[in-house]
């Protein structure tokens, strides 16, 4: 499995970073985003009562919202993107032969890319801590990174569910991206979700994995997490992990078999 992961990682790395300068460009873009967030937070410092729940500055609030949803969003979108890439390159058949090779490849491709993004996230948080006014301790940063890893299975499950829809409809990658953006905004990435009507806030808070990961991350960052809250969110996370992983894999397997039966391939508008 490690050899296979290494092979897939090298392939993904070569695809996303064909030259070393692309890593540099990516880092510069991240730093630029950081500066924008810092200036934005200074310009639009929210009324303190909105953030009292979290006990963190608006910059910290924004940075967590912006950066800590990247890996979840990517994990949700990457199985579909990788599947589409295999199909466009004409190598889908090679992955469909043999038991579970395609599924394994999609999971490892996603994890390869997530690993790169994870390193970038760690660098961004450290830079923000050392050179900007990020109000999170080093232990807090470590906890945030750990939370990111723990939530990967939920979003991977959702990713496979999205892929199943994509295989069924033979389109929809754009829709998945848009849905992910909407969920990001609704999760309260840029402003507290408490500003939404109460019923909506209550629903999102309990049922959207985006809200759950952000709430846990912010409460850990602001040291405002209570045992009850942590227990509530941990239980929800475990339930969602089991639910989405099972649902995702089951739907994917069902739709892949239907795809085989139809034997018509994919026609993408490039």
């Amino acid at each position: 499995m490690i050899t296979l992961f290494k092979l897939i990682f090298l392939k993904e790395y070569k695809y996303y970073y064909p030259e070393k300068k692309y890593i540099f460009i990516n880092l510069v873009t991240e730093l630029f985003s950081l500066l924008v967030l810092m200036m934005m937070s200074q310009a639009f410092e929210l009324k303190t009562q909105f953030l009292s729940e979290y006990d963190i500055s608006y910059f910290t609030f924004l940075l967590i919202g912006e950066e800590c949803l990247k890996i979840p969003s990517l994990t949700l979108m990457l199985p579909t993107r990788s599947f589409k890439q295999l199909s466009i390159e004409g190598v889908l058949d090679r992955h469909l032969i043999g038991k579970n090779i395609l599924r394994k490849t999609l999971i490892l491709s996603t994890l390869s890319f997530v690993m790169i993004e994870f390193v970038i996230l760690a660098i961004v948080l450290l830079i923000a801590k050392l050179f900007m006014s990020l109000q999170i301790s080093f232990l807090g940063i470590f906890s945030i990174l750990l939370i990111q890893l723990l939530f990967i299975p939920i979003f991977l499950g959702l990713g496979f569910l999205s892929l199943a829809i994509f295989i069924k409809l033979r389109r929809g990658e754009g829709f998945i991206t848009k849905a992910s953006s909407v969920l990001t905004v609704l999760s309260g990435a840029y402003f507290p979700a408490t500003l939404f009507p109460e019923f909506m806030y209550g629903f999102l808070n309990n049922f959207s994995p985006y809200n759950i990961i952000l709430n846990i991350t912010r409460s850990v960052a602001g040291h405002t997490s209570t045992t009850i809250n942590l227990l509530k969110y941990s239980s929800l996370s475990i339930v969602f992990t089991i639910l989405f992983v099972l649902l995702g894999i089951f739907s994917y397997e069902k739709l892949i078999n239907e795809y085989k039966r139809k034997n018509t391939g994919f026609n993408f508008l490039l």
Partner: peptide, 20 residues
């Protein structure tokens, strides 16, 4: 076309043989 465009022949051989 049945291999990855951006990889060399050798890289493709290593990848596809490594899959199984």
């Amino acid at each position: 076309s049945q291999m990855f465009d951006q990889l060399t022949g050798l890289e493709n051989i290593k990848y596809f043989l490594g899959l199984r």
